[in-house]
Design a protein around this nucleic acid. Structure first.
Lengths: 243, 243
DNA sequence: TCTCAATAAATTGTCGACATAATACTTTTG
DNA sequence: CAAAAGTATTATGTCGACAATTTATTGAGA
């Protein structure tokens, strides 16, 4: 399964084995990457913590070689920051960082929605519609079930991004930016009342795509992302995490 | 020198020592990264070539450890593609890849111009204006001098990107996408007649920014990028590089 | 007591070698 | 002769150890 020059293996980074069949012989580097990423995103390793290579290597019972490769990939996702000859630290969650991140995400997912309106096949659109209906009926979205909160929202955005058919954009959103976005959401306990409203917004976006109206799809997606960003920003400002 | 959470060391990837003072104690990995990147971008290592780790390590007289780190960073720039347990290959230049790349670049640099219109200081705008005037008078742009072709165009875009003040966007355009863009331009011998016209477009974009008109700046920048992309696409289609 | 220099400890960057998986080649079989 | 299976070779992934640099600690001097 290929996609215009980018192998599907790229999406191994996206969501754990559930959505994409995991590649069987996961290398040791991949294993610690997934474990470390989960720990960082979910706060198991606190934001701002210094990363100790010898300590982590011993903890995962591997050499420093595959660990360093995993760290390189974490840096690529902006989850850690490395300084030459000094070491790595887990990123801090800041208001300025969140704004910059969502500013970029708004543009990129808006672009994805616009492209999806012209690039998605009727079948793909139909599948997403079925996905939304399924979430609505089965998961009791309007009551704020956690399933939709997590996987449902992810799945919807995921399909539209893939629908753009632009491999660079896909790689960017699914691999390099998604985990940091999720880190903000998870560590700030995003279970807000926005869930049900987000569902309606998803439907509106899909309708625009089905109508092949790229401009409208982009506009609605940008608003959708912006609203989500403001929602997180509120939690971040009134939380304990300052600057 | 910091910039809202991203160290300036990031820009070491951008253009060799000329524009940003190079960090004195370059690590061995950095050295081979710069050398390899130059070789790939300029065609010294042909597109599509299989990368042999032992061979390159011997060639640069280093171990495989720093070489592999350099390769990881090259993959980050989309200059090579790695498959687990198989190896790495230099990317191929394709029409589809070029379109996807410029589709993304159009969006991102448009965003940069829009943000620059509100984020750049009057001093920074003045500096860019001075830069353009200097290029016009000294380098005889209108006759198609190669200096403007290379460094001048780079420098203009570079300053606007920095002017966006968005560290993620800056990192993306300057580190991850720029070298691949340059690879297309260099390997297709872009010395076209677009040079003088590009200069006028630069002036128009800067005027919009100076007027703090973000929407116009974005629109003009998008057209500017799109025209450049079409220009390269023509060379690519009629060249020897098919598919 | 505070500041600065010198030393000591720890960490990162690099090296050479081994284990495992992929590729190329040879041999066997239909 | 073609195709498939088995073997041989090469390359990638991983390991433990050394060198160079940074950070922490100690000591000296004002």
């Amino acid at each position: 399964m290929r996609l215009a020059g980018l192998k599907i293996g790229v999406f191994l980074n996206y969501v754990d084995k559930s959505m994409i069949e995991a590649k069987d012989p996961i290398t040791a580097s991949d294993r610690v990457l997934i474990a470390l990423r989960k720990a960082i995103v979910e706060g198991g390793i606190a934001a701002g913590t210094k990363i100790s290579e010898p300590e982590l290597a011993k903890q995962f019972d591997i050499s420093r070689a595959p660990l360093r490769e995993a760290l390189a990939r974490l840096e690529r996702c902006h989850l850690i920051e490395r300084t030459p000859n000094a070491g790595a630290r887990v990123v801090k969650l800041t208001v300025a960082g969140l704004k910059s991140l969502y500013e970029l995400r708004e543009t990129l997912e808006g672009m994805a929605a616009r492209l999806a309106a012209t690039q998605m096949t009727e079948q793909e659109i139909q599948d997403v519609r079925q996905l939304l209906d399924h979430h609505l009926s089965t998961q009791r979205v309007r009551e704020g079930e956690s399933y939709y909160q997590e996987a449902g929202d992810v799945d919807f955005h995921y399909r539209l991004i893939l629908g753009s058919k632009n491999p660079y954009l896909i790689n960017l959103l699914c691999d390099e930016l998604y985990h940091l976005v999720r880190m903000y959401r998870v560590q700030l306990g995003m279970n807000g009342p926005r869930v049900s409203r987000a569902f309606d917004e998803h439907k509106a976006i899909l309708n625009a795509i089905a109508a092949r109206d790229g401009e409208l799809a982009e506009l609605l997606m940008r608003r959708h992302i912006a609203a989500s960003g403001r929602n997180i920003e509120q939690h971040l400002q009134q939380g304990t995490l300052h600057d």
